[in-house]
Design a protein around this nucleic acid. Structure first.
Lengths: 265, 265
DNA sequence: CTCCCAAGTTGGTATATACCAGATATCCAC
DNA sequence: GTGGATATCTGGTATATACCAACTTGGGAG
């Protein structure tokens, strides 16, 4: 019934049909984690569409996080999502290991630096205070997952961050993730990846990810560590247990504006 | 190094140059909130590129959340980000009002229904338990921001949800957001919008947003409300104060797996 | 056997073109 | 002035084509 009597059937655009086909093949398990998706040219031929249309479909699947692309190598099925429980992050790394999650850390940079304006404000220390900064890339089963820049007060981990072979995991385990009941101010937002972040995470520019900021305080309430993570958005979800308070009680508390990195465009 | 003596300058692709131009015009305030961006054809002419290239640039700006498009009307500069403090969400709506944030609620649906399998499991009640479900669209300054589906135990708000004129705001204010110290299990993730969600939020299919789930418990620890919100990702950030515990203490606690909606692809 | 080059693959960029459908403005007839 | 047809905006979809650069593979020279 090409000329149907009732409403227009509103046929799905070609590229959306292809998207749905690919999605169903992924969720059904026909295509499993890290398996290559058909190439743009293969899809174009299979579905009898132009390569640009095939490309649009593949980019949509990619934008959804169901697939990732390796430049000039192909597109592959994304691995499953990980749960990041921020309330028990005392031991995210070893905790992940205990759950059978294979998480590798690649150190990208370790350096000492004096506090600049914005980080001094965040940590509530004078400008110029000595800091250690570590940048790490986390991989899950070899797959880039998130990027972390951690800034700590130098006097809190003196000796734990030797300059020559940067091995701050000892600090991670001993100090930051001590069994004491720390608190953390957390901010989570979605934002576009900067080009160099996208490169490290194996994504195209202008894709979005999830940024998580944590301002960690010791039991006395003093902030001593600020970390900023940028995640591939499809790779995790963040869970927490919150104590819900009256709005007034919070706004009367310290640091009412957790939105430092206002993430203006 | 055919012409240049040093490394290749690696010129930015045309569409990225256009993206950067548009971004700078937005951040500089040359283009302010809700102002129209140049049309695809205008950019094509201005930058002397094809319309498809102009389109790619505009879509990239859109994917970053710096702009939004209205079908066949044009693309416009996105408004600024909002901060959602989940720890003081006792009064998110009126709290927002107090901060001068203009937030409107549009009721889409209110209904009574028996608990299905998955929601019964989440709320830890028998299947078939009477529930009330509300779906609302929140706008900020007239701009669609997030979509909420809230499910509550019917016996917790009997009489507060009259069938004829659905006016559950009274419930929102009186019961759910009472001054008592509730707790909530929260999950935040980035995911692609379903087509109907995208339509309501004024986005194209296959764009990503942020989903927030809240399982709200009364002071006795009994869950009585489950809400799921889907946000335009660029419209908010989520902040909280977390008490960091040992991984063991959490995994020994109740509901160790907050990842119900595992969000499989 | 190893090493290197060439061929073929992949995605990335870019152009030119075409048609559709919704939204808007304009202008003319009434 | 009002109403309605029309022209012209907009983005949405789709095709065909072209070239580039990175990667993989295979084969041949040493």
């Amino acid at each position: 019934m090409s000329t149907t009597s009732h409403q227009t059937p509103a046929p799905l655009p070609l590229f959306r049909q292809i998207v749905d086909d690919l999605k169903s093949r992924i969720v059904s398990g026909d295509l499993s984690e890290h398996m290559p998706l058909p190439s743009e040219r293969a899809i174009a031929e299979l579905h009898a569409v132009s390569r640009m249309t095939a490309r649009r479909a593949l980019e949509a699947v990619e934008a959804e996080g169901l697939a990732y692309s390796k430049d000039r190598k192909g597109r592959f099925v994304s691995p499953k999502r990980l749960d990041y429980d921020v309330s028990s992050m005392s031991n995210f790394i070893s905790g992940a290991a205990a759950r059978g999650i294979d998480l590798q850390v690649e150190h990208l940079e370790s350096r000492s630096l004096p506090a600049g304006r914005s980080i001094a404000e965040i940590l509530a220390v004078p400008e110029g205070t000595a800091l250690y900064e570590n940048t790490r890339l986390f991989r899950r089963e070899g797959h880039a997952t998130f990027l972390e820049t951690e800034t700590v007060l130098a006097d809190r981990c003196a000796g734990l961050l030797p300059k020559t072979p940067p091995h701050p995991e000892s600090f991670l385990q001993k100090q930051r993730y001590s069994p004491l009941g720390h608190t953390a101010d957390i901010v989570i937002r979605m934002r576009a990846l900067a080009p160099e972040e996208a490169g490290l995470l194996g994504l195209m520019p202008y894709q979005s990810g999830i940024e998580q900021e944590q301002l960690v305080r010791d039991p006395s309430g003093t902030a001593f560590c600020f970390s900023r993570q940028i995640w591939r958005g499809e790779m995790a979800q963040f869970s927490a247990r919150a104590i819900i308070k009256q709005a007034q009680s919070i706004s009367g508390g310290r640091d009412p504006d957790g939105a430092r990195g206002q993430a203006t465009p």
